[in-house]
Design a protein around this nucleic acid. Structure first.
Lengths: 241, 241
DNA sequence: GAGTGGTCTAGACCACCCT
DNA sequence: GGGTGGTCTAGACCACTCA
């Protein structure tokens, strides 16, 4: 009862945009504001909550980003009829993914060759036919168990220094992150049948389903690399929202 | 030459947080500010750009969210050593996904039964054993071709009105979005071998790889539904970032 | 045309946390 | 301890778009 400490929820010091956000979210979830319904304007809400309009604005802006609201000038703000469900996945380096699971990471280079880029790769990345490419095949393991098979092509025209790089101890992924960070990426996830060579390495039967990621990367419009990652049996990509 | 229209890029009216964001991003991409490096403080940048600190703040806050920067009070702002690569996927209703591809959507209910929830389901959702559940199997087609097989369980203890709902023309997904919007979701993606019944429906061989999503849903802490979605051959989930 | 959201500003206070 | 980011405020102007 002494003086009130600034820690508990009851202390109504100043309204944060988080408070506003939470309250608005509550009203949507409890259907106080039903789907498709027009919600009060920023000024009105600012008065109700006793805060500045900017505070309400930030709250509603973030809720819009999260797919709960739909805002239009003049028309006002509405609760989305169908909330946009979106999930965010982090795309970690394999090493980080394995180590953060508390397992021991190991990397092995299975093959390396310099070839003219095959036709499908040129089509995929927009390469000039016959451009020199570095083809790498690698295995990433967790606690000694195969975890991910990596089949990578690097455009040597754009990244000639890759030819001199030593990929026997460092994975191409980590090398590339250092050499060409902040690039533009297209990524796909699919289920594929493990080709024989991949299956052998991952300890599966050929044709068994393998969770697969395909990633193509550009840097300032220039094609850099394309990779197919096949995960060992039982892999799942999970998230909450 | 009359008066200057406010349309072209050269018109330097007022600095937007977008401008600041783009410029900072440019400096990071071009390694003017290298990985791990400390970048100037908000006040300094605000002076450089000739704008308010709040403007710089918003720019840097968003770049932090996008995984390019790392901010700590007192320590200042640094370029992330390894940028966090993250991808955002929208989780659309199948119907929307199919129709937005310009195809004709069709829905069919394959089976429906009320059962006590099986043990695995209770474990997954945290249900009391023996709770009544509605089990639905459906098929979603695009232009007459099978697209997605849906195997769903609904917790009737939480959603008794589901038992009376007519799922012969409307998919459970759409019904649930109306009945229980804004719920909490855990979703996984994996590659699985198509079970015989699924394979038949999707026109695949049993055991063939199928891209699979598993989704569990709660509402205010209460388990609502669990679904396994198997996609037809060739499905990919793609995004750019 | 007018109302709503979108953004910028200038100033202020605070919390956190490195040196 | 002090510097940095985090946030709120009050006011202002603008752009879009609906009626």
């Amino acid at each position: 009862m002494s003086d009130d400490p600034p820690n508990d929820a009851a202390a109504a010091d100043k309204i944060s945009f988080r408070d506003v956000k939470a309250e608005i979210r509550r009203r949507i979830e409890r259907r106080i504001w039903g789907p498709g319904e027009l919600v009060p304007g920023e000024i009105e809400l600012a008065e109700e909550f006793g805060c500045a309009r900017a505070t309400v604005n930030r709250a509603m802006r973030e809720l819009t980003e999260e797919g709960l609201l739909d805002r239009k000038r003049k028309a006002g703000t509405r609760v989305r009829i169908t909330p946009i469900r979106q999930a965010r996945f982090e795309i970690p380096l394999v090493r980080a993914e394995i180590e953060s699971a508390g397992a021991n990471y190991r990397y092995a280079l299975l093959s390396r060759e310099v070839l003219p880029a095959p036709a499908w790769l040129c089509a995929r990345l927009g390469l000039t036919p016959g451009a020199p490419a570095l083809h790498l095949v690698c295995l990433h393991s967790a606690d000694g168990a195969p975890y991910q098979h990596e089949d990578r092509w690097i455009n040597l025209a754009a990244l000639p220094q890759a030819e001199a790089a030593d990929f026997s101890t460092q994975g191409p992924n980590e090398w590339l992150v250092e050499a060409v960070p902040y690039s533009e990426v297209e990524i796909s996830f699919l289920a594929s049948a493990a080709p024989a060579d991949v299956a052998v390495v991952l300890g599966m039967e050929p044709g068994e389903p393998t969770f697969t990621a395909e990633r193509a990367t550009w840097w300032q419009g220039q094609p850099i690399t394309q990779v197919r990652l096949c995960f060992a049996k039982g892999y799942r990509m999970t998230t909450r929202y």
